[in-house]
Design a protein around this nucleic acid. Sequence first.
DNA 1: GAATAATCGAGACGGTACGTCTGGTCTTGCA
DNA 2: TGCAAGACCAGACGTACCGTCTCGATTATTC
Lengths: 223, 223, 223, 223
Amino acid sequence: MQSSTPAGRAGRPRSAAADTAILAATRAALVDLGWSKLTLGDVATRAGVAKTTLYRRWAGKNELVVDAVAELFDELRLPDRGSLAADIEGVVLQFAAILARPEAKSGLMAVVAESTRDDALRERIRASIVDRQKRLVLEGRARAQARGELPPEPDATEAARTVDLIFDMVAGAVVHRTLVSAEAADGEWVRDFTHLLLWGLAARPADPPDLASRPTESGGGWA
Amino acid sequence: MQSSTPAGRAGRPRSAAADTAILAATRAALVDLGWSKLTLGDVATRAGVAKTTLYRRWAGKNELVVDAVAELFDELRLPDRGSLAADIEGVVLQFAAILARPEAKSGLMAVVAESTRDDALRERIRASIVDRQKRLVLEGRARAQARGELPPEPDATEAARTVDLIFDMVAGAVVHRTLVSAEAADGEWVRDFTHLLLWGLAARPADPPDLASRPTESGGGWA
Amino acid sequence: MQSSTPAGRAGRPRSAAADTAILAATRAALVDLGWSKLTLGDVATRAGVAKTTLYRRWAGKNELVVDAVAELFDELRLPDRGSLAADIEGVVLQFAAILARPEAKSGLMAVVAESTRDDALRERIRASIVDRQKRLVLEGRARAQARGELPPEPDATEAARTVDLIFDMVAGAVVHRTLVSAEAADGEWVRDFTHLLLWGLAARPADPPDLASRPTESGGGWA
Amino acid sequence: MQSSTPAGRAGRPRSAAADTAILAATRAALVDLGWSKLTLGDVATRAGVAKTTLYRRWAGKNELVVDAVAELFDELRLPDRGSLAADIEGVVLQFAAILARPEAKSGLMAVVAESTRDDALRERIRASIVDRQKRLVLEGRARAQARGELPPEPDATEAARTVDLIFDMVAGAVVHRTLVSAEAADGEWVRDFTHLLLWGLAARPADPPDLASRPTESGGGWA
DNA sequence: GAATAATCGAGACGGTACGTCTGGTCTTGCA
DNA sequence: TGCAAGACCAGACGTACCGTCTCGATTATTC
């Protein structure tokens, strides 16, 4: 039913190994040099590949870095730790760990900055990185609803809007903590963040503790 | 008290007008070209200034852009609208309006990205932009405590930590919404965001409505 | 005596049409682009042939151009116009006409320039172009001797040396006139040149006219 | 009457030393690599100069090579050896010596080839090289006329035309001998050439010897 | 008529040089 | 001494060709 060469085109086929080598070299260069000093010539050299090979496959530095960074986020998984709070903490810690890596740090924000003036690039980021991780929010909500921690959705439109809002809050907070405040999003911070996300700033002290297992904090109100 | 030439050194004093012109030219160039295509030679030309003059005052592109962007955020004010929710909505809308401007969009994230590999730059960003706006969180909390909307702080260390957390959440969410999701942080989004920030994801539907003036939304639970 | 496939090797034989098409395409490219902007990829495309086919037959651009240009000179013929002067004028005009064609102009001098650093190329030029046209000098001398315009050769070595000298003078002068002085080697110039070649710079006015049929010029001495 | 800075423009003046270094480096690169493998990047490196400096002063490789080669020909002088024949031999030998140098060989013909498709380049060659050497023909004729070896010019137009013809013949023959025939234009060849130029192909054996001091050759007719 | 073998078009490959642009520095002459 | 102008060195940019290679598809000869 299907040819062995799917796109049965003439000519020498592109080397699959080159793609892998180039993306790995890009991440290595991001670690060593950061985004602004990364040059495509250097990436090509590191990958053992000619510059033309690189330009044949990627339009430029931005597209290349998006693909190189996107692979980092594919290892994110939503753990099942028994409660919504624990699940969130788990996935946020994973996200923070990825963002702490130098190849992600420098590259991610740089391409986001570039994307403010390049619609195609923004779409690429969304398709390669953002939308692929929204699944985690969806899974988490479904699991929490199955457990009875959250009520079911009354309205599909509303539900989608909420996914986006939560994603912006979670991703935004971790990114801001890591890159702008430049402090580690460690266990303690993640617990505080999760607590605030779940029960809010105005929560009365008596409310949450029976759900959140956080004995270290006596019971002070938020803010 | 002070001479018109503060550091009474010999020789021709530096032109004060040049600084203003350079920063304005930098913002104009950010609007026209974005960060990555902005060149110091072009900024100098726009400002009617020689490149040497520019380099005499700023170490490089990053430092210049930080100063040019920082001025944008100085117009942020915490309005007194009578309730914590309304105050937050007001200030978040202002922040979103600034971030929506092209000179801020492109420049801010770019220097943040650069700062991941340049400690001095990160300090400059923190001093010029981040820390100067944390006052808004402090003011807001104090005002809410005065109104009785929030309990007083039992512990100073805890209090400082919470300010940072809230700042990361607010700034992070708005930035992510604006730059990564690339959608406007408009009135509706800001209301949703504020609601979630104040009462959390797990809030029972019955709890908030008496505080939050948000009649449009019937009463669906979050997430 | 001979097989229909001379070199009875197995496999698909080379296309004879390709050679013709490639050489014609080379000349067309010389006309359109000149030597320095001519690329083998472009020649291949013009000839409707793959680059590999071209490289299988010629070692590089220089060899290809030599062959393409050499064909132009094969049409040179020594006309029999009754006198040595008229014969020389005839053949020089033909030579000038070929050199005036853009494919010859640009290509010929370029490969000569290249040949100063490539012995194999110089040999190829000599074999394909230079030596093949020296026959014209030999024929012309023999005919003039038969007519009694020139004395017979007393010495074979001397005779060969003289052929080379004359060839250098004729070809050199026409090439210099056409390419360096960049003016047409037209009938008038050819007459002047032939006159000078036959009777020399120091000829006394009275000497030549009885041989050269050149009534337009009254009788002024040369130089 | 004249300012010390003739073109009183602002900014740092161009380095005069750079020009000298670049032209010398160009000749060195011509010797080592030949015209076609000469690269401007390499010339810049050899000259200890940035590529931009080079491109600021010359439009490209061709213009640079013309200037570099032109300097070689400025050392040509017309010696006074007592007779027209001896003078010609002297200057032709000098010309041949220059052409024998590898920097001239490769460079000169290459730019001539290029000039067939570039009018500005041809003009540059003419102004820098060709016309500057025509003075030698003029001087030689004047001196021969003073000696009574040549008659005075009856017609100015005719006289100019003859200078061009002689220049094409002399320069063309030497170039062809050196580059195409690829043999040395040594003393013997130069004597033969001068003899032919002065007394022509059809000269009767008895004529020249009383003028040309060339006792080695008994009396063989030409051609 | 199969097996073998060389050629064919197509196009990717590792290289090298292109000519341009920018980053920072330095030299001028004027104020 | 500051300043505008602009030349300077250094080096990355993205493109174009080079000459080679790897494909699948042809087209001959040889078995």
